[in-house]
Amino acid sequence: MQPIIVGAVLYDPKVSVIWDIIRDFFEANEVPMDTVFYTNYELQVSALLAGGIEVAWNSPLAWLDAQRRSENGCRAIAMRDTDRDRCSHLIVASDGPIATLADLRGKTVAFGAQDSPQATLIPKEHLLRHGLGETDYVTRRFDLAVGKNGDHIGGELEAFRCLQRQEAAASCLIDLNWNSWTADGTIDPARYRILTTTGRYDHCVFTVRHEFPREREAPFLHALMAMDYANPKHREMMDLEGLKRWEPGRVNGFELLTAACANQQFFAGR
């Protein structure tokens, strides 16, 4: 079997270590895999559509971009259990003046990077659906690692720091970061609270072109699904990847982001 060529975006060189472990796992399961790393999702999507890679580990925004540029010519074949049904929070100071979403009118809201689904695009869509358009609040954006679609937590962290400095009335972050940062002390849950939570959305997804041969897809998915969290040898790898189980890909979790991209004209001119 020829190696399956898998693309991944690196937001940190240490991420390559995870992919080395995954590649070794696939090799041990007699599914040879080669990885190609990219600095940003736009390049990775281009490579996927041009046939340079067969499988792309795509952010949700990259999934939409791949579908947009291929006129729905892609398939979502697998995702982590933790990629399903995520949400984002807008958080505020517990003792501050913001009691409702309407109180954000005229106030500054701190967002992550411009291409972060979880910390910018979806929270803005949420505000819009609750009657707050772009001009109803002041956007303070933290464009860290643009092109990596918010993979880098820096933008969300800087947005929270902005809230801490009282330079914003609210900041946005994905639920996973709220959970870990309130647990590790980065955010004091006694001083900050969740003002509102967005609707559910799906996150990263393994993406292939429609014509990706089923005889290559099947062993790829077989090896992927063979990862077993109950197996101590697999657990470390799965912890690094942030999942307990691989799930089939699904495409019904991108509605919020699709609307966000349309309303914010994210892809205009691209």
């Binding site: 060189p13 790393f37 600095t39 940003n40 390049l43 490579a47």
Partner: peptide, 11 residues
């Protein structure tokens, strides 16, 4: 440029 050491496309 640590990503260049990994041959990262686009670096």
């Amino acid at each position: 440029q640590p990503l260049a050491a990994l041959g990262t496309v686009g670096e």
